[in-house]
Write a protein that binds this DNA or RNA. Structure first.
Length: 447
RNA sequence: GGUCCGGUGGCAGAGUGGUGAUGCAGCGGACUGCAAAUCCGCGUAUGUGGGUUCGAUUCCCGCCCGGACCUCCA
């Protein structure tokens, strides 16, 4: 079994992964803020960390994967105000949609999916600890984290605190001691969600929930913290500062893993730019499995330019894999080939793992049944190639009607009426159905 | 402006201090009634200028280009 090596954003180096407790690996990933449909950029970390969790489960006896749900947030409040829909309804509906979309992309649910609103007491407990230890202060109903109290502030994002503020385009609230201080707790007016606290009725700042929920489910120190690269600053920097100051001596997350951004036409996909493509949009254009493969064809830390062309290409690649599986049916096997495991263990090199799958597909097409079994098992590590090839090629409605027309063509061919036979072929081709004549008869697939 | 990341064939995309993976597309051939698929074969790439080295795509420096973060963001 190869050693797992991961790139740690904290050290900016690839390091050998050594769990705090080899009997129990703990992973925390930042999840969605539930106010709108997930876009394909939101799906990238889900798919990436799904692969990481599958790999960890293969390598270690027990893994706890926590992914939070942010269900208290000013974007949610704004959405509710704008549409008139109650906050609870928005978050419940959006979370259900999120679950459906991520399941369609083949992502397994995390072990724990805690919601921020269910952990207000944990957040208050951490804030109290921070105040007691001099790392936070209350001012005008707010509680702020004092960045000056934490010398290592800026280490994760690589920004010395003073420089960090020079170009910041934020208006500095007058009650802040230091321009970089950030909100742990803020007051809520009556029309906004709020909870009673030692500082009055209010709601949490953005970062504190992750400190609270990771603490609650994984402890003061855990192994891996994941999320999008855009979260490094300020979210993860702040989270790290809060947690380490609240629990002195703890290391918080040992390894920080960040996925690169998804681009559309060379620009970052983001809600503010309005150029986002929802997972739904993507699923309407092609198979979910092709979307998943597309997300894994690029190394997770690199940026990935989403395009229809790449989506179609991913689909053709899957055609090849499923063709190999169909030609050489293999019993289910869960012996993941070493070549695939080795690629994944090298900082989750999914593009290389996919290249290794192609080697197996070649062997399977040449008649090697064990290679076919290995292909399916290796695909399983990536969360692909688990469906029946027949469903991949011929799934969907109208199968019976298509079969009937193929039979009609076969009759024509037997009668050597090739004009009629070709007319049927062409008609089906117009409908996106490709026929393949072989020694065992004619088979078909959707192009 | 500050910090960081990256520039590999037509496209996508890995690895590597010493003959440059893999896929898609393209071309030629085999196979096929015709196709499709498959198989065989072919071609084309390391942004740029220096440095280190016997040798650099790989390490170092400058430059150019692209992107991210510094504000909600996956």
């Amino acid at each position: 079994m190869p050693d797992l090596r991961l790139h740690n954003s904290l050290t900016r180096q690839k390091e050998r992964f050594e769990p705090l407790d080899p009997a129990h690996v703990r992973l925390y990933v930042c999840g969605p803020t539930v106010y709108d449909l997930a876009h394909i950029g939101n799906a990238r970390p889900v798919v990436v960390f799904d692969v990481l969790s599958r790999l960890l489960r293969r390598l270690y006896p027990r893994v706890t994967y926590v992914r939070n749900v942010t269900d208290v947030d000013d974007k949610i409040n704004a959405r509710a105000q704008q549409s008139g829909e109650p906050i609870g309804a928005i978050t419940a509906r959006t979370l259900a949609d999120y679950h459906a979309d991520m399941a369609a992309l083949g992502a397994l649910p995390p072990d724990v999916e805690p919601r921020a609103t269910a952990h207000i007491a944990d957040m208050i407990a951490i804030i109290e600890r921070l105040i007691a230890s001099g790392h936070a202060y209350a001012a005008e109903g707010h509680v702020l984290f004092a960045v000056g109290s934490f010398p290592r502030y800026g280490a994760l994002s690589g920004r010395p605190p003073d420089e960090m503020l020079a170009g910041a385009r934020i208006e500095i609230a007058p009650y802040k001691r230091d321009a970089g201080d950030f909100v742990l707790w803020k007051p809520s007016s009556d029309d906004l969600p709020g909870w009673d606290s030692p500082w009055g009725r209010g709601r949490p700042g953005w970062h504190i929930e992750c400190s609270a929920m990771s603490w609650r489910y994984l402890g003061e120190s855990f192994d891996i913290h994941g999320g999008g690269a855009d979260l490094i600053f300020p979210h993860h920097e702040n989270e790290l500062a809060q947690s380490v100051c609240a629990f002195p001596g703890s290391g918080f997350a040992r390894v920080w893993v960040h996925n690169g951004m998804l681009l559309v036409n060379g620009e970052k996909m983001s809600k503010s730019l309005g150029n986002f493509l929802t997972v739904r949009d993507v699923l309407a254009r092609g198979p979910a499995e092709a979307a998943r493969l597309l997300l894994l064809r690029t190394h997770y830390r690199a940026s990935l330019d989403f395009s229809d062309f790449a989506f179609a290409e991913a689909r053709r690649e899957l055609d090849r894999f499923y063709r190999a599986l169909e030609r050489r049916p293999a019993p289910p096997a869960d012996t993941v080939p070493e070549s695939v495991l080795e690629a994944l263990c090298d900082d989750l090199n999914t593009p290389l793992a996919i290249a290794r799958l192609h080697e197996l597909a070649d062997a399977a097409l040449a008649g090697d049944a064990p290679a076919s079994a290995a292909l399916r098992a290796g695909g399983g590590m990536l969360g692909i190639l688990q469906q029946d090839p027949s469903a991949w090629f011929r799934g969907g409605p109208d199968a019976a009607a298509i079969e009937a027309r193929i039979a009609e063509r076969q009759a024509a061919r037997r009668a050597r009426d090739f004009v009629h036979a070709d007319a049927v072929r062409q008609a089906l081709e117009q409908e996106g159905i490709v026929l393949e004549d072989g020694p065992a008869g004619t088979t078909w697939r959707r192009a």
